Simulated assay, not measured.
Amino acid sequence: MRRGSLNREGFELQYCIKGQGYPIVVVGSSVYYPRLFAKALYEKFTFIFLDHRGFVKPISALREVDCTLEDILDDIEAARQHLQLKEFAILGHSGHAFMALGYAKKYPQYVQRVILLNTAPTNSQERQQESFSFFNKTASKERKAQFEKEIAFLEQDIKQDPERRFVHMCIRMGAHSFYDYAFDGLYLWEDVNTNMKIIDYLWGDAFAKLNLIDSLHNVTKPVFIGLGRYDYLVAPVSLWDSVDENNNVKKVIFEYSGHNPMLEEPEVFYKELVQWMSEKL
């Protein structure tokens, strides 16, 4: 494992490089995401885990302009130049799928493949409400009970540590996130920094105005879309039905996973990703 950083307008973006083989840039947190992938994948690919501005310590004077999605995309490009990458696959999980696809469209000359995992096509309020309704209609009584038990602590968590509001929400919504609804994901978030002003803007505004299915219409590179059957955060998987018509898109539904199939079904995830990555461009 190798770590480094680059400074972008006062934001100290960390990166973590792990593995060997064809490079896959993973946008998100360089602390959180290395914990999700199985060791076997590091023997096939070089993963480059890259922070974005929402996962670094807040700078003292944050301007509104520091919150744009375009800045995030240009940060990724600066990291590419810093690491001297000529071609690679880019991976975006959850909300980071919007960043990954956005970069692939802005800098297509460097991206050979696009991997979008566990995301909804949009993060609009309407879609979020649709996901909650799906949970209420289809989740088991035991799963709902676990959710009610955990979510009751969220207000207290936020009051004690408001700058980690995003982390607290992710932890307390485990019943929406994992096939094993009692799974304790607290360890995944240890030492993960959050910058809530930027996260609020990206997830609440920028991603709500975008639609990944619409964005895919002009993408000719191979695209892998991975979804968890029990991922209630971005449910239902039928939101992605229309992409089956795209010849360059491979959609895989992981039947015993929630929001993190690379962690929950590592062997199946390995098989599907390696097979797709080995296909000729």
Rank of each mutant, 00 (worst) to 15 (best):
H52E: 11
H52R: 11
H52F: 13
H52V: 10
G54C: 02
V56L: 09
K57G: 07
K57D: 11
I59P: 06
S60P: 01
A61L: 10
L62D: 05
R63S: 13
E64V: 12
V65L: 11
D66M: 08
L69H: 12
E70T: 12
E70A: 14
D71C: 12
D71R: 15
I72S: 14
A78C: 11
A78N: 11
A78T: 12
A79N: 02
A79C: 14
R80D: 04
H82K: 13
L83W: 04
L83H: 05
L83S: 03
L83F: 03
Q84Y: 07
Q84S: 14
K86M: 05
K86R: 10
K86D: 13
E87A: 10
E87N: 13
E87L: 01
F88Q: 04
A89P: 06
I90G: 08
L91F: 15
G92N: 07
G92P: 09
H93F: 00
H93D: 00
G95D: 00
H96Y: 10
H96R: 12
A97C: 06
A97P: 03
F98T: 03
L101C: 02
G102M: 09
Y103D: 07
A104M: 04
K105Q: 14
K106N: 06
Y107P: 03
Y107L: 05
Q109M: 07
Q109F: 04
Y110C: 07
V111Y: 00
V111F: 01
V111N: 01
Q112F: 01
Q112H: 08
Q112I: 01
R113G: 04
R113W: 03
V114K: 01
I115V: 15
L117I: 08
N118I: 00
N118S: 08
A120H: 00
A120Q: 00
A120F: 00
P121C: 01
N123D: 02
N123Y: 10
S124R: 02
Q125M: 13
Q125C: 06
R127A: 00
Q128N: 13
Q128H: 11
Q129L: 13
E130R: 11
E130K: 13
F132C: 05
F134N: 12
F134P: 07
F134G: 08
N136T: 09
N136K: 15
N136A: 15
K137V: 14
K137G: 08
K137C: 13
A139W: 03
A139P: 04
A139N: 04
S140C: 06
S140F: 05
K141F: 10
E142M: 09
E142C: 03
E142A: 14
R143Y: 03
A145P: 03
Q146K: 13
Q146H: 11
Q146S: 14
Q146M: 13
Q146R: 15
F147I: 04
E148V: 08
E148Q: 15
K149R: 13
E150V: 00
I151W: 06
A152L: 10
A152D: 10
F153N: 10
L154Q: 07
L154E: 10
I158Q: 06
I158A: 03
K159I: 08
